[in-house]
Design a protein around this nucleic acid. Structure first.
Length: 423
RNA sequence: GGAGAGGUGGCCGAGCGGCUGAAGGCAUCCGCCUGCUAAGCGGUUGUGGGGAUAAAACUCCACCGAGGGUUCGAAUCCCUCCCUCUCCGCCA
């Protein structure tokens, strides 16, 4: 959410930011409504002041046992008028609050302007992407042949877009999770284990709702959403709190499954492990001072890319252009790995700075000094990393002509000493 | 799921229809005092919003779990919901 005072003061800036993100929103209508509400507030507060003053008079009168019927009658009138205006203020206020949730975050000034993924900027490459000396197979074939990936099992249980890992495949997944968490803990993150179902307020707090409701799994009976990413519970853990500046930055890491309906996805996009409705992910979330957040974004990106470097997986980092940015993000880097079997770059992480967009929604603040005013802090998060695509990359990148798959060295201890996946 | 108890400021805790943004204590910060430490004395310290301002000062309004209601007036009375604790039941 944006600062309402900022919208009032700089509507042109907001209009421009919204346009850069490719979002439609009627700022003028919003401001008109806001103006109307403020003039009503002005009026009703004057009346309330009147009420407070005459309430005192009545009280004094009663004490002296004097008759004050005319005062009471006048107060009744004022009171009724107050009630009327209050209802209108509340109504307009609710409409404004609702509208406000649809205003996206502004892209940071360093974000390249662009209207489609082609305008994203490659900012870094690491490792050599070499052609394999044989025809590489896609991960779903490799996985099925090794008996570690059971696509049919997943769809039999839950339909299209669900997978079953078995044996060494399940172990590989678990090994990756442990490896990543251990690494992030070393990097200074505190590990959290959090609920996988959260309230509507949490989903609004981090900006998934109201925009993306169609993409979320929802348990109607309990009014709970299955989390689409650990970002939601972990960021909201500090909702409605005020943190001492000395505690910042706060860094959390958490492993959770993620649930996404992926409405509208189709074809190649959804084959194998590339886009599934339920996947595992290790996430990093940071709460930082506003002045540090861009530096913290770079270090977050570093914390994520180290994972790939240790796994010896080549990657590239892409800075998203304005229209490719998510609703809540001010700036975002995607990390992609090359999967030779499907001959595609796969997004395995998104590292974003939300500035105070989420913290304003979730009311997460900090205090610079003991008696200072609370200020909104900045939130960031990044995957470190999303499991299925990393597994797909490992299978395709480390495949051998004989069908075996080499396990990255750092994972071997987590795999009980095993160095290859083989049938 | 059933029965009871309770939710008041940074914390503890009073208030149960008007002068209570809220006693008292603890804590905070500032000053004074005392060789040091401890204590003592005086003062200070909530959040959100509107107006005002270059920014403040200032001023007004709201806020005692949340939302409604009664009333001229609600922390206080009534209703609904949420949360916490205790006991019972049920279940991994």
């Amino acid at each position: 959410m944006l600062d309402r005072k900022f919208i009032r003061k700089a509507p042109d800036t907001v209009r421009e930011g919204i346009k850069k993100k490719g979002v439609e929103f009627d700022i003028d209508g919003f401001l008109e409504l806001d103006d109307r509400m403020r003039s009503l507030i002005h009026e009703v507060e004057k009346l309330k002041h009147e009420r407070n003053v005459s309430s005192e008079k009545i009280s004094a009168c009663k004490k002296e046992k004097k008759n004050c019927d005319d005062l009471l009658a006048a107060m009744k009138k004022t009171s009724n008028r107050i009630k009327e205006i209050d209802v209108e203020v509340k109504d307009i206020g609710e409409r404004l609050d609702e509208l406000e949730l649809d205003i996206p975050n502004m892209p940071h000034e360093t974000v390249p302007y662009g209207t489609c993924p082609d305008h994203n900027v490659h900012v870094k490459h690491w490792g050599e992407v070499e052609d394999l000396p044989f025809e590489p197979e896609p991960h779903w074939d490799i996985g099925e042949k090794l008996g570690i990936l059971d696509m049919g099992g997943g769809s039999r249980l839950s339909g299209r877009g669900f997978v079953v890992l078995r044996g060494a495949g399940a172990l590989l997944s678990r090994a990756l999770v442990s490896f990543m968490l251990d690494l992030h803990i070393e990097q200074g993150y505190e590990e959290l284990s959090v609920p996988y179902m959260v309230s509507r307020d949490c989903m609004i707090g981090t900006g998934q709702l109201p925009k993306l409701e169609e993409d979320m799994y929802f348990c109607e009976k309990d009014d709970l959403f299955l989390i689409p990413t650990a970002e939601v519970p972990v960021t909201n853990l500090l909702r409605e709190t005020i943190i001492d500046a000395g505690e910042l930055p706060i860094k959390y890491t958490s492993f959770t499954p993620c649930f996404r309906r992926e409405a509208g996805s189709y074809g190649q996009e959804t084959k194998g492990l590339i886009r599934v409705h339920q996947f595992d992910k290790v996430e990093m979330v940071k709460f930082v001072r506003p002045e540090d957040s861009y530096e913290e974004l770079e270090s977050l990106l570093g914390d994520a890319t180290v994972v790939l470097e240790k796994l010896q997986i080549p990657y590239r980092v892409i800075e998203l252009c304005s229209m490719d940015l998510s609703f809540a993000a001010a700036k975002c880097y995607d990390i992609e790995t090359y999967a030779p079997g499907v001959q595609r770059w796969l997004e395995v992480s998104s590292c974003s700075n939300f500035e105070d967009f989420q913290s304003r929604r979730a009311n997460i603040r900090f205090r610079r000094e003991k008696c200072g005013k609370p200020e909104l802090l900045h939130t960031l998060n990044g995957s470190g990393l999303a499991l299925p695509r990393v597994i797909a990359t490992i299978l395709e990148l480390n495949q051998t002509p004989t069908g075996k798959v080499r396990i990255p060295e750092v994972l071997v201890p987590y795999m009980g000493g095993r160095e290859y996946l083989e049938a």
